[in-house]
Amino acid sequence: MRIGELARRSGVSTRSLRHYEEKGLLAARRGANGYREYDEADVRLVQEIRALMAVGFTLEDARPFVACLRAGNESGGVCPESVDVVRRKLAEIDTEIRDLMARRDEMLRRNT
């Protein structure tokens, strides 16, 4: 499929797809006419990238998930490298929550 169809099927812009390609997360093959060509597996890769970004992961964080899917796994989150990224991200979120709660408590102390 060409880039426009992949964009429609995965719900992202062609600009985003080019960006993912530039970052090495998506690999387009080139047809004889020079057009980018993608296959069905690329739809799943792009959906995984978008889902990860929607919950706060960066494109760099998405790399192990993409690699896991490319390796033939049903989910991008089953590989050890992906699990490590999830654990790291959860630790970051826990730290943010603690920091926010401390700020909240301080505000309450100052205004009561």
Rank of each mutant, 00 (worst) to 15 (best):
G4A: 10
E5F: 00
L6R: 06
A7S: 15
R9V: 02
S10V: 03
G11V: 00
V12M: 10
S16T: 07
L17P: 07
L17R: 12
R18Y: 04
H19L: 15
E21I: 13
E21R: 12
E22I: 02
E22G: 06
G24P: 11
G24T: 11
L25G: 11
L25R: 09
L25H: 07
A27I: 12
A28Q: 01
A28S: 04
R29H: 04
R30C: 10
G31W: 07
G31Q: 10
A32S: 07
A32L: 11
G34M: 12
G34W: 10
R36D: 03
E37H: 07
E37A: 05
E37G: 03
A41D: 14
A41G: 13
D42G: 05
R44L: 09
V46H: 06
R50E: 15
R50T: 14
A51I: 05
M53L: 13
V55Y: 13
F57C: 08
L59D: 08
L59K: 02
A62S: 14
R63C: 07
R63E: 08
F65I: 11
F65C: 13
F65L: 08
V66M: 01
V66A: 00
A67H: 06
A67P: 01
C68E: 07
L69V: 03
R70Y: 02
A71D: 15
E74A: 12
G76S: 06
V83R: 15
D84C: 04
V85H: 03
V86A: 10
R87G: 01
R87V: 09
R88C: 12
A91H: 02
A91C: 06
I93C: 08
D94Q: 06
D94T: 06
D94V: 03
T95H: 11
E96I: 02
E96R: 12
I97G: 07
R98T: 08
L100W: 09
A102S: 11
A102Y: 01
A102G: 06
R103G: 09
D105K: 07
D105I: 05
E106L: 14
L108V: 14
N111H: 11
T112H: 09
T112Q: 14
